[in-house]
Simulated scan of single mutants.
Amino acid sequence: MAEPAGPGRREGIPLGRIAGVPVVLAYSWFVIAAFTVIAYGPVLARNNPALGASAYLVAFAYAVLLLISVLVHELAHALTAKIYGWPTQKIVLNLWGGHTQFESFTASPGRSVLVALAGPAANFVLAGGAWLVLATFSLGSVAEILTNIFMWANFLIGIFNVLPGLPLDGGRLVESVVWKATGSQAKGTVAAGWGGRIIVLAIAAWFILRPLVAGDEPDLSLLMITVLVGSFLWMGASAAIQQGKLRERLPLVSAAALSTPAAGLSATGTVQDALALGGTEGVSVVVCGPDGRPQGVVDPGALASVPGSAAASTPVTAVSFPLAPGAYVPEWSKGQELIQFLSQLEGRHYAVVDHNGRVTGLLTQDAVLAAMTRKRPPNDRYPQGQNR
């Protein structure tokens, strides 16, 4: 899945909504459209001399038909997901075909397979419909060319997408089988990612190595397509493997387990009160507002710099930095729930509270990232000294 477009940056041209799902035509689609015209136009002109220069218009129509085929494919994903209550954020049509971007949802092996295979099934239906048209009606030359192209394009899109490896739809079948057998979606995702890498190697062997071994020179257009498609699949498969490995580590992400000891102190308190709570002895001091909610964290360095004679008269807010609004989590939060919640917050520090709202710990973004990546967090308690 691609990341949402950054603020102020348009991902492409909005095409409106279909069944309530926003559809966006990415600017990169025009690259593949131009490539189709340049590569396929001369072939059409050579095989159909009567077309003349209009062969390039037919080639562009071919690119549009491919776009429609991909749109139907992605709509099948979105509409099937809608049956299970999975919210669809948008459909993006781009250089690589397209993708359906979902919001957060709870999946199961069976439902994941049905949503994934709905796309190729839609393409097979389109291919069958085109075949019936060709078999039933006598079309003009251009219409027959485009209908024939439409039929084979959808058939090949369907076949290609059921190959057993991510990021292809067939990879979800592999993922679900392993998921069902092991009880771990993460292991299924990793297995399907490796399936995708094997598919790339098989494609390269068939379209590049096989002609070379036979003493033939690979067709340049076919070689370019193989390299582009192989690169895309390899990146997607590698991303799936990485995602699976990260998902395996989700159980390690726990607010209670990753936080350091902390105590709450009213914003009306003083430096002397913070010192009494152990603010310079490994216990973080979280400043709480009148409503009892965490609103800041005492900086140990600033706390230690206050002279003893001024400790009782210096407000604790003078040696603390603010927490982002709402930057506190229940101590029982863990896994995907915790990750999703923290991703919506600003800042790098989060107070941890118990069932009574009492501060029990301080969680840092570095500690969470370390648990996810298995890298040691920085040694200092407050990186860069601020909650940025």
Rank of each mutant, 00 (worst) to 15 (best):
I83Y: 12
W152I: 03
N161H: 05
A143G: 08
F150T: 03
A81P: 08
A130C: 15
I159W: 01
Y84M: 10
L166T: 11
L93P: 06
L132W: 15
I91R: 08
L173F: 15
L146R: 12
I91N: 06
L173D: 01
P167C: 06
W131P: 00
Q89A: 15
I149A: 13
G170S: 04
W131V: 02
I149S: 11
I149R: 04
A130Q: 09
Y84V: 11
P87N: 10
G171C: 05
N154E: 05
T88Q: 01
W96S: 12
G97F: 10
G165P: 05
V125D: 06
V142L: 01
L79N: 01
W96E: 02
P109S: 08
I159Q: 01
T80Q: 07
N154P: 05
A76P: 06
V92W: 00
Y84A: 15
K82Y: 00
W86V: 15
E144D: 13
N123D: 09
W131K: 10
L146F: 11
G128E: 10
N123Y: 07
I145H: 01
G98V: 07
F102C: 00
G119H: 12
L146E: 10
D169M: 04
A135L: 04
T106A: 12
I157M: 15
T147D: 01
P109L: 08
L173W: 11
L93Y: 08
I83C: 03
G110T: 03
A122P: 02
A143C: 04
L75T: 04
V72Y: 05
H77Q: 07
F155W: 13
G119F: 10
R111H: 07
I157D: 03
H77L: 04
V162P: 06
A122Q: 04
W96K: 07
V142P: 05
G165S: 09
H77G: 06
L75F: 03
A135T: 13
T100A: 15
G85E: 08
I159H: 00
